[in-house]
Nucleic acid binder design. Structure first.
Length: 476
RNA sequence: CGGGGUGUAGCGCAGCCUGGUUAGCGCGCUUGACUGGGGGUCAAGAGGUCGGAAGUUCGAAUCUUCUCACCCCGACCA
């Protein structure tokens, strides 16, 4: 019954690695920083992807695909963009057995190539808005890779839209932030803080960056999605213009927004326990697993027949249910395996249960076992899945709130960070210098700016009158 | 790029300092039997260019030199 994992409390990063491996989600590839996403991990990503894709379609977006290779000169066209991405870009200099005329960048993100295409596609206000998303892999050379959280190659989606007015672009940016927040909270059961990034944390080339920030169990923040209002920066760099109703040629306003396979890491770090991964039912590839128990052949036949009926009932009700009828494994090892994989509900069915017309049900998020009559199995499982979903969210919310504090001075600020960690709300004078000083001294960064302007009080760094209220945290 | 470390079976390691028969251990794997309501037991097996190269030696996983790879700690990021 005891766990073999390093506990979260003892060493969170190590716990994370062990749990990812034990849950059979992914492993490191021969190339440093790259990962192989295994079937169970990929199924998890597919569920996130499918739900998001549906949400994008519901908000009027369509999918397209842009190429992996981008002429290096494209990246150079937007000054902030080059500077921001230069250190992590992979460049192809040779191909076809010779040196290339112009090096090709392996996309770290696709604003530039998409901007180039939009310049061709957009002529008139009648062509707007353009609402395109793409599912793709991108490469950003990483020095400190961590499975799912930070990998050199990762899977993501990037939405790229173009609009006639600044207002429309801003509305789009905020709308997609909302979509991300809903995905995180309703689907991944992770409460998030929504907000705007400081200038220092803004996407290279963007006017404004909004984001959702989750808090992990170790008190560190995780950026779970970003939505950028790019203003006319890329429109000007790539000359994306349209003729408006007034006859004038104008630059469009663009946005971009993305979430990645990092979300899989978020789910693990937000909900996992010392026995392994715990998956919210809505994303779980397997929501309920049934482990049959028997000794003699006649027991086997009876149990398996009843088990198949139960599974069929669950599947008919839309539950992603699985019968684990592998005969080479005893029930015990199966229990541990599914537990490590995070399956929300486990059912055990043996001869004793058959006699009583019941199964034994175990919730992944709780201790203990309960008997459930076969007559009400399907509705009980459905209800339990909903319960697990909401209690995971509630638990994460309580943890988050308990780890959100205010600091009035640097002393208090550091005390909180070194104690419980988590989000710390504090006042600063809003300068890059103060923000940098906090980062250098405490490793905490501004996750979101809560308010700029007349906030009262004084800057915790300089003591000058404060002009900004922000949420800080140490982050992944 | 600066500092520290590791390469021996699929994985994790011992052996090296102090050279000496067929290079071991745990887990995993294969076959079989007994087992089966929370990680079972027994038996029999398979699996190795000891990272690579050169050298010292009668003899090298072990000593020397070179080389390659990877990992950890310090500057960025969805």
């Amino acid at each position: 019954m005891s766990s073999k994992f390093t506990t979260r409390e003892a060493d969170f990063p190590r716990w994370y690695q062990e749990v990812v491996a034990a849950g059979d989600l992914a492993e490191n590839a021969p190339v440093r920083g790259c990962m192989v996403i295994k079937p169970h991990g990929y199924a998890l990503w597919e569920n996130i992807r499918d739900r998001l894709d549906q949400m994008f379609k519901e908000t009027g977006h369509v999918n397209a695909y842009f190429p992996l290779f981008i002429p290096k000169s494209f990246i150079d066209k937007e000054a902030d963009h080059v500077e921001g991405f230069a250190p992590e870009v992979a460049v192809v200099t040779h191909a076809g057995g010779k040196q290339l005329e112009e090096p090709l960048v392996v996309r770290p993100t696709s604003e530039t190539i998409i901007g180039h295409m939009y310049a061709k596609w957009i002529q008139s206000h009648r062509d707007l808005p353009v609402l395109i998303n793409q599912w793709a892999n991108v490469v950003r050379w990483e020095m400190r890779p961590r499975l799912f959280l930070r990998t050199t190659e990762f899977l993501w989606q990037e939405g790229h839209t173009a609009h006639a007015t600044a207002e429309e672009a801003e509305a789009e940016t905020l709308q997609m932030l909302e979509v991300y927040a809903r995905l995180a909270e309703d689907y991944l059961a992770i409460p998030v803080r929504k907000g705007i990034k400081s200038r220092m944390e803004t996407f290279p080339g963007a006017l404004r960056t909004y984001c959702i920030e989750g808090l992990m169990q170790d008190g560190k923040a995780l950026q779970m999605g970003t939505s950028h209002n790019l203003g006319q920066n890329f429109a000007k760099a790539f000359d994306i213009q349209f003729q408006d109703t007034d006859g004038q040629r104008k630059h469009v306003f663009t946005t971009s927004w993305g979430v990645s396979t990092r979300l899989v890491g978020a789910v693990i770090m937000a909900h996992g326990d010392d026995r392994g991964i715990v998956l919210p039912p809505r994303v779980a590839p397997v929501q309920a697993v049934l482990v049959p128990i028997f000794r003699k052949p006649e027991e086997r036949d009876a149990v398996l027949a009843a088990a198949r009926r139960a599974i069929d009932g669950l599947k008919a009700a839309g539950v992603r249910a699985k019968l684990d009828d592998r005969e080479q494994l005893k029930p015990g090892p199966k229990f541990f395996e599914w537990e490590k994989k995070g399956v929300p509900v486990r059912l055990e069915m043996g001869p004793r249960d058959l006699k009583d017309n019941q199964v034994v049900m175990v919730r992944r998020d709780q201790e203990g076992k309960n008997a459930v009559s076969l007559d009400v199995l399907t509705e009980t499982v459905l209800k339990t899945l909903e319960d697990v979903q909401s209690s995971l969210f509630e638990r994460a919310l309580e943890r988050r709130d308990a780890m959100t504090n205010k600091a009035a001075s640097m002393g208090e600020f550091e005390e909180i960070l070194d104690g419980t960690g988590g989000f710390v709300e504090a006042l600063t004078d809003g300068t890059d210098e103060s923000e940098k000083a906090v980062k250098d001294n405490t490793k905490a960064t501004i996750r979101i700016v809560l308010e700029d302007g007349d906030v009262g009080g004084e800057c915790m760094v300089t003591g000058k009158p404060a002009t900004r209220r922000a949420l800080f945290a140490r982050a992944y």
